[in-house]
């Protein structure tokens, strides 16, 4: 197993009371799985995705990544795990607006202090892989939304992570572009054996999962 969740509970204070955003959530993900997480708005999908590697701290429960518990480790160690082993793709692409395509892709490598030449080489290869070799010096605003999401995908895999966390990656795209991106994610999953956990509203996107979790009111109701 690459990732396991055991009895995950996340509570929020709201108007003096407690709300269970995640309630007794347990799951196991094998290396190379393409996991889709579906459910209505407010069901806790994004909370689950962001809590798995410490971007949101749990109220209780265990998370085991690569054989080690990570829910109880400090912020610095969690940051280190995110830096080396996790790639994120967000609905809004989350690109840095004043950096060019290749500079955006090089950020995870810069954080890992990879030498500049190596950064450039790897970022160029990945941009070629996602079909943006001719857009390396473009700013995000000079790219189409589909291209921007491909830059985000390139950035999420450039440092060769073990797992990709995708939060509604096709949420801002039209159906044709959505399919293009989903096919791409599948390609990455199959060719590079990178585990993907993808939160989505779309039944079409959910169909790409090899493992499917359905959340409702913070609980897994179907898997």
């Amino acid at each position: 197993m690459i990732l396991q969740g055991e009895n995950i509970l996340k509570q929020y204070q709201h108007n003096g009371g407690l709300i269970n955003a995640l309630d007794s959530v347990s799951f196991s993900v094998k290396k190379g799985d393409f996991v889709t997480v579906t459910g209505p708005s407010g069901s806790g999908k994004s909370t689950l995705l962001l809590s798995l590697f410490g971007l949101i701290r749990l109220t209780s429960g265990n998370i085991i990544f690569d054989g080690k518990r990570i829910d109880n480790i400090n912020d610095r160690k969690l940051t280190e795990i995110r830096k080396k082993s996790v790639g994120y793709i967000l609905q809004s692409f989350a690109l840095i607006p004043y950096l060019t395509t290749i500079q955006n892709v090089m950020i995870p490598l810069a954080l890992e202090k990879v030498p500049k030449k190596e950064q450039y080489k790897r970022a160029s290869e990945i941009l070629d892989y996602v079909g943006l070799a001719d857009r390396t010096d473009h700013l995000p605003r000079e790219l189409s939304v589909g291209q921007q999401q491909r830059v985000a995908i390139a950035r999420s895999i450039v440092h060769r992570p073990q797992i990709i966390m995708a939060d509604e990656p096709t949420g801002n795209l039209d159906p044709a572009l959505s399919l293009e991106i989903l096919e791409f994610l599948r390609k990455i999953n199959q060719e590079n054996k990178i585990t993907i956990i993808m939160v989505t509203h779309s039944p079409v996107a959910a169909g790409y999962g090899t493992m499917k979790l359905h959340l409702n009111e913070g609980k897994i109701v179907n898997s």
Binding site: E80, K83, A94, L111, E112
Partner: peptide
Amino acid sequence: KREIGILRMMGAERRT
């Protein structure tokens, strides 16, 4: 703020 969030998400430490 969002850029800081993105960087922290990607593994930037507080000292970065």
